[in-house]
């Protein structure tokens, strides 16, 4: 179907079907498209079938192709109405309740119609990540929006936190390695400059390692790197390198935390979960404190 030959064949085939409303037999088709190889013909026919443009019928022991027209697919007026409403919603999709409100078709009938349309592959239902049990309808051939599926980080409506964590640690390892190499420079400015890595480089590295099954975009990797910034492990800056064509390239670099552990946290009272109830003559008191006991044993 991709080659010019295929395209030509498809056009001729559809034209033939248009003129013969009652269908075209395999033989006729063969005679019309002699020049096209069987392989291409089969491929194109299959694609048209899968796309729902034509249908295959059996008539007296003979296979016939027939054009499947929209009018035929939308059997009733109600279906047309629903189809139009769903088409309007685009790739965001529309909720069953909203269809009901707009079309004013009673609930039971509507769900029946939707089901039948779904089986005819006119529309499809997609689970939204916004609400767990909320289904939205959209046209069959529409790619759902990221806001519905959740984008790269979601599979089957679940947030893939493990995937994110792995990417997070891998990115950090990469940045850390770069920073280690940069340490060898004696000049502080050089050291700093060479430890910065652009998000493109990180992206290339991650895509190369093959951790991710899907190819990640620059936006995706920047989201991951941002989480490292919020972990306090990485510092971000915007490159102002005039030689690079992309001026707003984000650069990242592994850093030391300014304070490792606050000294308050080095003793039991810092992390004590019951500090609120700790009093001299209370049930919980510093004298009887079990956390202190453990602290002394170390």
């Amino acid at each position: 179907m991709d080659s010019t030959e295929g395209k030509e064949f498809v056009a001729r085939f559809l034209n033939l079907l248009e003129t013969n409303k009652n269908g075209v037999s395999e033989k006729t088709l063969q005679s019309v498209s002699d020049s096209v190889s069987t392989k291409i013909r089969a491929e194109c026919t299959n694609k048209l079938l899968a796309g729902g443009k034509i249908e295959l019928l059996k008539k007296g022991g003979q296979l016939i192709y027939k054009l499947k027209n929209e009018d035929q697919r939308l059997e009733t007026d109600e279906e047309t109405v629903i189809y139009n409403i769903i088409e309007e919603a685009g790739n965001i999709g529309i909720w069953m309740r909203d269809i009901r409100l707009k079309s004013k078709i009673p609930q039971i009938q509507l769900s029946k119609l939707c089901k039948s349309m779904e089986s005819k592959k006119l529309i499809k239902s997609v689970k939204s990540i916004a609400a767990n049990k909320k289904k939205v309808y959209m046209l069959y051939n529409v790619q759902p929006d990221d806001s519905v599926t959740g984008g790269t980080w979601y599979s089957n409506n679940d947030f893939e936190s493990e995937f994110v964590e792995i990417l997070n640690s891998q990115c950090f390892k990469y940045l850390l390695r770069k920073a280690e190499i940069a340490r060898s420079y004696s000049s502080p400015i050089e050291r700093k400059k060479s430890s910065f890595v652009s998000s493109y480089e990180v992206l290339d590295y991650i895509n190369e390692t093959g951790i991710s099954r899907v190819t990640l975009s620059k936006k995706d990797i920047e989201a991951i790197l941002e989480t490292l910034v919020f972990d306090g492990k990485v510092e971000r800056t915007v490159s102002n390198d005039s030689s690079s064509s992309d001026t707003s390239d984000k650069m990242y670099r592994a850093i030391n935390r300014t304070t490792t552990t606050t000294s308050l946290m080095r003793m039991p009272c810092g992390v004590c979960p019951v500090a609120k109830d700790c009093h001299l003559d209370g049930v919980i008191s510093p004298i009887k404190c079990i956390y202190f006991n453990d602290f002394f044993e170390i």
């Binding site: 919020f230 935390r257 552990t261 606050t262 810092g270």
Partner: peptide, 29 residues
């Protein structure tokens, strides 16, 4: 300010785990 931020973030991470630490730092920025 930087010192305070990082000590507070370390207090939060130590008490509630690294995920909370991340969220706390996120809110600080």
């Amino acid at each position: 300010e930087e010192l305070i931020h990082s000590s507070l973030a370390s207090i939060v991470s130590d008490r509630f785990g690294s995920q909370c630490g991340r969220i706390f730092r996120l809110l600080l920025t």
